[in-house]
Amino acid sequence: MTNASPRQNIHEYLAELEDIPGTRVFTAARARKGYWINQFAMSLMKAENRERFKEDERAYMDEWAISEEAKAALLARDYNALLDLGGNVYFLAKLFSTDGLPFAEAVSTMTDMSWPEYRQMMLDGGRSPEGNRSIKGGY
């Protein structure tokens, strides 16, 4: 048998996940909150749904149990707001592709950089973890 590692306290585990700067870890709480945002986004995998959505975004979203706040964020393509509302990037990516937006470019809209600046940062070796690891610890 394997050596069991000491079992972690669930409250400490979940608290740590909130201690990362600029990051929304997709916890069960977020998955519950954003369930219909993500299922709505998933529906855009089907061509006929993409057509209907593009024709009238508002009317298509009204068929889903999504809050007004989330609908506004979806209309504005405000992806950071959608992360806060429980959206997950792999689901939201269906909206990127509905818009014909390359993945990395869509990701760059969540940062404080333009797409060319973000692209250059990646070519230069990416964002450093230095100072980006912990909110409380500041390291």
Binding site: G22, M110, T111
Partner: peptide, 9 residues
């Protein structure tokens, strides 16, 4: 792939 910290390597 998400949030303001996106692009970390």
């Amino acid at each position: 792939l998400q949030g303001p910290r996106a692009g970390l390597l």
